[in-house]
């Protein structure tokens, strides 16, 4: 025990760590391990059977493609929003800045029904798309809209502080050496912020992969076309196919863990660059 922790005069270590580990085990560790044990009863062949079925693969394609598209949109516009919020001042800026976090605070079901209403063929925004024969709601495009909403704050909030830390002197130096504004951005500012941009992109992407509430209202949920993987888990559950639902869940969990690891690596990388 003496080697397990360094000496300290402060009390409460055993109580605090004991409670932390107990609570973590009961709420997170044991329930999550139930998932893996349940899959184990399926056997490796059974797992592969479920995971490689046509419908699961189609749902993974839809999920990945729409999540990627939404994260790309958010990376592009999120960078512009962060830029505008850091560099310029305009009336109502504080309000706009606070509103960026709305997708974190607004329940996903509310986002889902309001986006479905707005982008329906007769909705405020959907009617303009309908004029060009483009259907947004009840198609994969609708999923991209919902996932863009959900992921909007990530890029803005990761890029904002890093952009604020870019020192004006470096930009001045580059400019006084004859670099144009676009060159300064490309050669000086962008290299400083792109680890943060990539981190924000990865966070938005990871969030989108697991998203359920905002998507199901606008997706149309057509198997093979606009059915996302989390919905397929629910569909299997409703048919009492617990083993099938569990196998897909494990697959999703492994994907999430891989993403979590890469995000941690990204953050480590970007903080090291920041500390230079």
């Amino acid at each position: 025990m003496a080697q397990f922790r360094a000496h300290s005069v402060l009390p409460g270590f055993n109580l605090a760590l004991g409670f932390t580990l107990l609570y973590f085990s009961l709420i997170v560790l044991i329930p999550l391990s139930a998932l893996f044990f349940k899959t184990a009863t399926l056997g490796w062949d059974g797992f592969v059977d479920v995971a490689s079925s046509e419908r699961v693969l189609a749902s993974l394609r839809v999920t990945f493609f729409t999540s990627f598209a939404a994260a790309v949109i958010n990376a592009f516009f999120g960078l512009i929003v962060a830029w505008v919020l850091v560099r310029y001042s305009f009336p109502g800026k504080k309000l706009v800045d606070a509103l960026v976090d709305l997708p974190f605070a607004l329940p996903t079901a509310v986002a889902g029904i309001v986006l479905a209403t707005l982008y329906a063929p007769n909705g405020w925004l959907g009617q303009y798309f309908a004029a060009y024969d483009i259907k947004v709601a009840y198609t994969p495009l609708g999923i991209v809209v919902a996932l863009t909403f959900i992921g909007l704050p990530f890029v803005v909030r990761t890029v904002q502080p890093v952009l604020a830390d870019v020192e004006a002197e470096v930009e001045e130096a580059a400019a006084s050496l004859g670099a144009g504004r676009l060159d300064v951005f490309r050669r000086v500012i962008f290299p400083a912020i792109y680890p943060a941009l990539l981190t924000g992109f990865a966070l938005a992407f990871a969030r989108a992969i697991g998203e359920y509430g905002s998507v199901i209202f606008i997706a149309g949920n057509m198997p093979y076309i606009s059915e996302i993987t989390p919905l397929l888990i629910v569909a299997k559950l409703e048919q009492y196919d617990y083993a099938g639902a569990t196998a897909i869940a494990v697959l999703m969990l492994l994907i999430s863990f891989a993403l979590l690891l890469s995000i941690n690596a990204l953050q480590w990388w970007s903080s090291r660059r920041g500390a230079r």
Binding site: P31, I209, Y212, G213, F257
Partner: peptide, 12 residues
């Protein structure tokens, strides 16, 4: 990192 649906499923 866990999808909300999976979070519910583990308790089921």
């Amino acid at each position: 990192a866990v999808s909300p649906v999976v979070s519910g499923l583990v308790y089921v």
